[in-house]
Design a protein around this nucleic acid. Structure first.
Length: 491
RNA sequence: GGCCCAGUAGUGCAGCGGUCAGCACACUAGUCUUUCAAGCUGGUAGCGUGGGUUCGAAUCCCGCCUGGGUCACCA
């Protein structure tokens, strides 16, 4: 049987390096065995999914050098490859489960579920659905479904043990009693991940499901669904999660996670991909610099290690340096530079900001250099200005939280965010903005703040705010907690 | 907290019962260079812990500890 693997990102934000990491391994497994690699978009979360995010993910993955055989942009024999376009298929299969008695409609309100969980938590018992609606007769259920809002849940045995076969870990035993009666179809009629994923993997002939370790605990649900449908289960392979330096799961709050950030920072796609390949994996000869082709050629699931690897930007930087100096002539490097930022598309909007502030062409470089730089050594006095260090830290942290929550990254939205923050904090906008201005540009004379943030993009901007906070002495746990309280007081 | 997963220097990995546990990043000393990098030569630093099994354990088994994940009408 032909090996078929997939990566199934959810288009709910910036393209994540974790997605590229999972994609890379799936790609290598498929190609190593002459198989196919599929890209599927899991956009069943209507609230958070956006087409803009999907587009970014596809182009970011392509930028990394990963190509798929089938996907929403190129089609294929198992399409459509966007879950929002496969609704009927899920509905049909939810109905099958309903008919076979493996699933049931649940009419419980959010309030009741909330109370139920609160009670369970208080009593210290297993938290999960209590089976309230499971006994409703098929007729009554069908009748009520016509008028009442409801979800469809899967039935899960209340006793016994489920054995999951993970390729890396062998048998994993999980008590059924710890598995919740998962919602399969939401009240908006769309499936949850669990249903859609199983149905799609089956109809797309996926043979190996290689995904993050975070999925292990819900694997019993998936296995059960395969059983209910009478389908063959693909081989499960749970890859260790990429970590922050503090070992927690890699997250944008602690680390830049967007592929776009690494691109803007001046990392080369082949270096980033190579680096991702040395997370949890090594070449048999221990060589650390290798191409995608070499990785495919040598790929072997047995060479995957399971300790969660810390995404170490320092080592990535070293690797990137090797690619730059070992693989480029000055002429080639110039082309890279042009591709990167030294082009009209990137520079022109920046020149628009700089134009009015320029008297000689030679004034230009210092004025706009922060659009091409990585990080700075800040002048701490410039960073704080007239503010006390603690106040500057507070402003920066509050602003950072606002920026982290911001969904649409554009000049107006950013301005609104800062305006509302300054009102809530009852400080002058200009005072609030000052440290950000320096944090973004490393200077006191520079381009307009909001436009600058917009051009730099979310991850780069956040990274600079974080860097400024660190250089000002950072925020300890205690201070951070105190600030969090103050912040949540006015949101 | 319940359940699950993991645990080789600060970090990424090698090791798969039998030489002083190797490599790379970082750090550091020296060397080269007009400076700084890069390069080269060294150095510091590790098998979480306690029990077994075995002639012999980083490697196999068990307990503990630590870290992580997960407990949604998000994926």
């Amino acid at each position: 049987m032909k090996v078929r693997t997939r990566v199934a990102p959810s288009p709910t934000g910036d393209p994540h390096v974790g997605t590229a990491y999972i994609a890379l391994f799936n790609y290598c497994l498929a190609k190593k065995h002459g198989g196919e690699f599929i890209l599927r978009i899991e956009d069943t979360d209507q609230v958070r999914s956006t087409r803009a995010s999907e587009d970014m993910i596809l182009s970011a993955l392509n930028w990394c050098g990963i190509e798929w055989d089938e996907g929403p942009d190129k089609g294929g024999p198992h399409g459509p490859y966007r879950q929002s376009e496969r609704s009927e298929l899920y509905q049909e299969h939810a109905q099958k489960l309903l008919d076979s008695g493996h699933a049931f409609r649940c009419f419980c309100t959010q309030e009741r579920l909330g109370e139920m969980r609160a009670k369970q938590r208080e009593a210290g018992e297993f938290q999960g659905y209590d089976g309230h609606c499971i006994g409703i007769s098929a007729d009554e259920s069908a009748e009520r479904a016509k008028t009442e809002e409801h979800v469809i849940r899967m039935k899960v045995p209340r006793e016994g043990t489920c054995v999951i076969d993970d390729h890396f870990r062998g048998d994993i035993e999980i008590e059924w009693a710890t598995v919740d009666m998962q919602v399969l179809v939401k009240s908006d009629g769309l499936p949850t991940y669990h249903l859609a994923n199983v149905v799609d993997d089956h109809f797309m002939d996926i043979t190996h499901v290689m995904r993050g370790e975070e999925w292990i605990s819900s694997a019993p649900k998936h296995q059960l669904l395969y059983e209910y449908f009478g389908w063959e289960m693909p081989q499960l392979c749970h890859l260790p999660l990429l970590r922050n330096p503090d070992k927690s799961k890699l997250s944008k709050r602690k680390n830049p996670t967007s592929i776009l950030y690494y691109e803007r920072m001046g990392f080369l796609p082949e270096a980033l991909l190579n680096y991702l390949g040395m997370m949890a994996w090594t070449m048999p000869n221990e060589e650390e610099k290798f191409t995608l082709e070499e990785m495919v050629e040598n790929f072997d699931l047995d060479r995957v290690s399971l300790g969660g690897p810390v995404f170490d930007t320092e080592k990535l930087t070293w690797l990137n340096g090797r690619y730059i100096r070992e693989d480029h002539t000055p002429a080639q490097l110039f082309d890279r530079l042009t591709e990167w930022k030294f082009n009209r598309e990137y520079v022109e909007p920046i020149l628009e900001m700089a134009l009015k502030r320029t008297e000689r062409l030679s004034d230009l470089e210092p004025l706009v250099s922060h659009f091409f730089n990585g990080h700075f050594e800040y002048d701490l006095e410039e960073l704080t200005g007239k503010l006390e260090t603690d106040d500057a830290l507070k402003y920066l942290q509050f602003g950072l939280w606002r920026l982290e929550a911001l969904r649409d990254w554009n000049s107006e939205a950013i301005m609104d965010e800062f305006k509302s923050l300054s009102e809530a904090m009852d400080v002058k906008l200009r005072d609030l903005l000052k440290p950000f201005f320096v944090a973004m540009s490393g200077k006191t004379v520079s381009t307009p703040l909001f436009d600058t943030l917009a051009v730099l993009g979310p991850d780069m901007s956040r990274a600079r705010v974080r860097e400024a906070i660190n250089q000002l002495g950072g925020l300890g746990k205690k201070k951070l907690k105190k600030l969090e309280k103050e912040y949540s007081a006015f949101g």
